[in-house]
Each structure stands twice: as C-alpha cells, then as structure tokens.
Design a protein around this nucleic acid. Structure first.
Length: 280
DNA sequence: ACAATACCCGGTTGACACGA
DNA sequence: TCGTGTCAACCGGGTATTGT
C-alpha cells in the first residue's frame, strides 16, 4: 500500500509506503541525508514494515524529522497534481508539521488530471510503437536489414500454397537455426498489437485456400494448426514483440483467423467471379 | 449406468469499417 | 471505390453436470 504525498513547502510530489504515515495520517517519515538512489531503493524495496521505518531514524541523517506535507492517501482514492511535480532532489530540510486535507473537489480534479496524463502517455506509446513497426517493415522492404534475412529461406516459400508445402516447412524448421530464422522473419512482420500481428503473420504464412483446411485445435474435421511447429514459431515471434500476451490469447486469435479464412476465401472468389462476369 | 440438459468453445456468416 | 479486415451474432458439436 502506497500513499501519494505533496510536500507543501516545496511544491514537490512523491510516494511513500503507507506505514510511514503518522497515526493521524497528517505527517510522514522520510529518509533525510541520503542520496536519491538510496532513497528510491528504500522506498521501492523496503516499503511496508515498521522495522524499515526505523531504519530512517538515523540520528546522523536527521531522519527522525517529520516533513510538512499535504497528503493524498490511496486509501481515499486520492491523486496528485501532475503539472507541478518537482524533483525531490532539491528537497530542503522539512520544517513544521501541519498537514492539510484536500477537499472532495480537489480530489476529483487531481484524479482527472492523472487519468488524462495516463491516456496521453498510452497514446504516445502506441504512436511510438507504430513508428517503430513502420521503420522495421520499411527496412525489410528496402532490403536494408541483415543480409542473412534478405536471403532467408522463407521469402520465396511463403505464403504456403498447399499441404505438401506445410510438410516441407515443417521439415525445414526441424533444424533449430532455420526455426529461429523463421521466428525472426515472423517477428519482423510486426503489428501494433498482438491481434494485428497474428493476422499479419497468418496472412504472410498461409494462402486462404490452405488456411481453410486448418482450425485452431482441429475440430470439425479440420487439421489442428496449433500442433504444427510453424505455430510454435508464430507463438514465439508474437511473444518476442508482445511479451505480455498469454498463450490463450495467441491461440484464440490464431483460431479466429483460421475460422474466418473461409469467409475471406469465398469473398475473394465471389469478387473474382463477379469481375469475370463483368468482363464477359 | 444412462439419458437429459446446460454450458462452453470454436466455426460460420453477414454487416460494417478501414486503408490504399 | 474496392479489397480486405474486424466484429458480433448465431449455430453446432463436444463435454460436464445432474437426475433417475
């Protein structure tokens, strides 16, 4: 449990273990006379025991002092001003000890500010990820990547056109080095999230007419794609780029792609048919 | 032990959205 | 505008549960 606190006399903000609060939650202990790294280390790693708090009561570092704070406890759903965060490296020796409770409106305003900032950060991360993906894909297209990848075994072999080519690839990737090459190849396909990456990879791997012969686990008289070593390569490539994706999410998305491949196939067939009709 | 039922998972389909 | 991707609703088969 953490408390987010604002140091009134410095316009600075910090978070500390909740147990560092005084009994009335109006004051907090804080390590004084230590460098920033040490302070961070203490806050991050040694957070919740009374024993730890006692560590700060080092007479030489004046750690018994209790700084003056306005505090926002996460017990109360409190939050902080994001536009006014100062480095605590410039913290002066605290004086006095009067705490001020924020009112409800302040709480709400602070919470909204933090949520807004969080959304902005998420957006920025997504944008950056997209840019990285674009750069990587561009490099592949322009053959600027590692020469070994230019001549990769799979450039000419994918997408797979029939079941015998599946067997061929399965045989090839029994060799660990070639398997890793496939993983690298699929990894560089990229995708801003795991779903898009799965779809891009599957599209690169299988023609629709082959994809319709497979389902995730092989139900309804279809072949089980997840039993293939190719699937393991897909799985590893996705995990490498989106490491928080679960096995279940990957398998489900691959299964869904395969399940929908019939629709893709028939729609492309229909469209080709309609095109031919128009030409006649 | 067996049959009936409920539930879950995966496949199919059609509509809509999106990007080139 | 067209081709393709995505999503949601629906359907069906398999499996677990429950009652007899």
């Amino acid at each position: 449990m953490w408390d987010i606190i604002i140091w009134c006399d410095e316009d600075a903000i910090d978070f500390v273990p909740s147990v560092w609060a005084s009994s009335d939650y109006k004051q907090y202990k804080y390590p004084i006379g230590l460098n920033q790294n040490k302070i961070r280390e203490i806050i991050y790693e040694l957070d919740t025991t009374e024993e730890v708090c006692n560590v700060h009561k080092d007479p030489q570092s004046n750690a018994n002092s209790v700084p003056s704070v306005t505090f926002y406890s996460n017990r109360e759903g409190g939050t902080v001003h994001t536009d006014d965060v100062h480095s605590i490296s410039s913290r002066s020796t605290p004086t006095g000890s009067s705490g001020v409770f924020p009112n409800h409106d302040q709480h709400t305003e602070l919470l909204q500010t933090i949520l807004k900032t969080q959304i902005e950060i998420k957006f920025e991360i997504n944008e950056l990820r997209k840019k990285v993906d674009k750069i990587e894909n561009k490099e592949i297209n322009q053959n600027k990547v590692d020469f070994r990848l230019q001549t990769t075994t799979f450039v000419d072999k994918l997408p797979i056109n029939n079941l015998s080519e599946i067997d061929e690839i399965e045989d090839l990737i029994k060799n660990e080095e070639i398997f890793n090459e496939l993983v690298n190849f699929l990894y560089l396909v990229g995708g801003e999230n795991y779903v898009r990456m799965v779809n891009s990879i599957m599209k690169k791997l299988l023609r629709h007419k082959v994809a319709v012969k497979f389902s995730g686990v092989g139900k309804k008289q279809k072949l089980p794609f997840c039993n293939l070593k190719i699937y393991k390569a897909v799985h590893m490539a996705i995990r490498r780029r989106h490491n928080s994706t679960t096995d279940q999410e990957i398998q489900k998305t691959v299964s869904l792609y395969l399940a929908q491949s019939k629709a893709r196939l028939s729609s492309s067939k229909t469209r080709r048919f309609l095109d031919n009709q128009e030409k006649v």
